[in-house]
Computed example of a mutant assay.
Amino acid sequence: MTMEELISLASSSNTTQSTIPQVHALNILRALFKDTRLGENIIPYVADGMQAAILGFMSSVWAVRNSSTLLFSTLITRIFGVKRGKDENSKKNRLTDLFPSPV
């Protein structure tokens, strides 16, 4: 219920009201998606979080665009992981063995 409410606030594009709740919702979502202790529990909300981040790019308010960019970056890391080795073609950097290294 909390995630749904945060995503709803983060996705709102109502320019007549204060943008402070939207910015806070985006920042809280970023912290939740970044927290490794939540693990698999947060995965069902990644798509909605990505949508909220992308919708925020169109805001006329800098704080919303900034928070959206930070959320987007966190979600990309959550989805694809981080680089584990210096060598670009290293097996450690692969998400799966379905795509062999182009050597």
Rank of each mutant, 00 (worst) to 15 (best):
P21T: 01
N41L: 14
G56T: 01
N89G: 15
R84S: 11
L95F: 01
L71E: 01
P21L: 04
V61F: 08
I43C: 07
V82A: 07
I79S: 09
H24L: 14
I28K: 11
R78Q: 04
D35E: 09
R30F: 07
K86N: 12
L95C: 02
W62R: 13
A25D: 06
I43P: 09
L26E: 01
I42E: 01
G56R: 02
I79R: 05
G39A: 11
E40A: 13
L75Q: 05
L75I: 10
V23P: 03
N66Q: 08
S68I: 04
T69H: 08
L98I: 11
L70F: 15
A53S: 11
L38N: 03
Q22C: 13
N89S: 13
I28M: 12
D97S: 14
V64K: 02
I42V: 15
L29N: 03
R37F: 00
K83S: 05
A63R: 10
S67I: 01
L95W: 06
T36M: 08
M58Y: 14
A47V: 14
K83L: 06
V46Q: 07
P44G: 05
E40P: 09
W62I: 10
P44I: 08
F33H: 00
R84G: 14
G81D: 01
N41D: 13
D48Q: 14
M50H: 13
E88Q: 07
S60G: 07
L26P: 02
V61L: 06
F72K: 14
Q51S: 15
S68W: 01
P44V: 06
A53G: 05
M50D: 12
L29M: 04
N66D: 02
R84N: 12
T36H: 12
L29T: 02
A63H: 12
I54T: 13
D97K: 15
R30L: 09
M50Y: 06
A52N: 05
V64P: 01
P44L: 04
V23S: 02
D35H: 09
T36I: 09
G49W: 00
I76G: 09
T36F: 07
I76P: 06
F33D: 00
A63P: 13
R78L: 00
I76Y: 12
R94V: 08
R65F: 04
F33N: 00
D48E: 15
W62Y: 14
K83W: 01
G81C: 08
F72S: 13
S68F: 01
G56I: 04
T74Q: 04
R30Q: 11
T96L: 02
T77P: 09
N93R: 04
K92I: 13
D87A: 10
S68C: 04
N41M: 11
K83M: 06
D48P: 06
R94H: 11
Y45K: 00
S60H: 11
I76Q: 13
A53D: 00
P21I: 05
L55H: 10
P21S: 02
T77D: 09
K34R: 10
G49M: 03
R78T: 03
R78A: 01
L55W: 09
S68Y: 01
